[in-house]
């Protein structure tokens, strides 16, 4: 068995690089965190004017290769712009191993709304409470254990600018990917009227084979008139297009699965 570049060797088993998506509200220090992870090993489109295009980068942790994807900042999963649509599409795709939801510790309430919407769709989530240094200087303390218990996913406090909490965050990412930590994300409850509507839509979606969070997430999108969510599910081509080289990650994934079969 030959080892291709960019693949991982862990315990003699070759596996693809893990894909970590960074999502969050604008102005949460998401890009700073992303930079802290990847350093200069990143690839952007033509212009990194904040997060105009999607930036990708690589990092290694405990001998495993990761591809980090910096998603455009968004306030909710109900998009208002092409960029927010891309972020939403990505969350609904199966192109990642874990989503790190970056939140602003000084403005947690607003940021949690997005985290909750993401938790509705996927359970591969780590919540990162960033800007913890800023919160401290304002006299705020965030009890991440309590937050973690309430959300049902690992929660780590970080200060991306001075690197505080980054090892813990990497550890949490790894533990969610490997399944060492089982997540039981908090699911949003709606009014009985909405729940009824969602059940009705979920009934229509039966033949698509969607289950769990995806099914519920897609139902919510459709209820809000976001019909293009179906395109995303039909094929992930649009996302792959947007991401260009991330396709490489998919290729590796495919190759690895072929390898696994032939072995």
């Amino acid at each position: 068995m030959t080892e291709t570049a960019g693949t991982n060797t862990a315990g003699g088993v070759t596996c693809r690089p893990r894909i970590v998506a960074f999502a969050g509200n604008p102005n949460t220090g998401k890009s700073t965190l992303f930079n802290a992870f990847t350093g200069l090993r990143q690839h952007t489109g033509n212009w990194p004017g904040k997060t105009v295009t999607v930036t990708r980068g690589r990092f290694r942790f405990r001998g495993v290769n990761y591809i980090a994807v910096d998603l455009p900042g968004t306030y909710s999963l109900l998009p208002n712009s092409p960029e927010e649509r891309l972020a939403k599409d990505f969350i609904f795709s199966d192109l990642y191993d874990v989503v790190v939801v970056v939140t602003d510790a000084t403005c947690l309430e607003r940021n949690l709304a997005l985290a909750l919407q993401i938790l509705e769709v996927t359970d591969k989530v780590v919540v990162c409470v960033n800007l913890i240094d800023e919160a401290r200087s304002k006299g705020l303390r965030v009890n991440t254990e309590a937050l973690s218990r309430m959300l049902g996913v690992p929660t780590v406090a970080t200060s991306a600018r001075d690197g505080e909490g980054l090892p813990a965050l990497m550890d949490a990412i790894e533990s969610v990917i490997t399944g060492r930590t089982a997540t039981r994300p908090l699911k949003l409850k709606y009014t009985s009227e909405i729940e009824g509507q969602l059940r009705r839509i979920a009934g229509w979606l039966g033949p698509t084979g969607l289950v769990d969070g995806k099914l519920r997430g897609v139902s919510v999108q459709l209820l809000c008139g976001e019909c293009d969510v179906l395109d995303v599910l039909r094929s992930s081509n649009r996302i792959v297009e947007c991401l260009g080289k991330l396709d490489e990650g998919r290729r590796i994934r495919r190759e690895c699965s072929v390898n696994a079969v032939s072995r």
């Binding site: 306030y75 909710s76 109900l78 208002n80 309430e109 607003r110 709304a113």
Partner: peptide, 8 residues
């Protein structure tokens, strides 16, 4: 409208 709701 949409943005207003998004912002909470």
């Amino acid at each position: 409208y949409r943005r207003i709701l998004d912002l909470g």
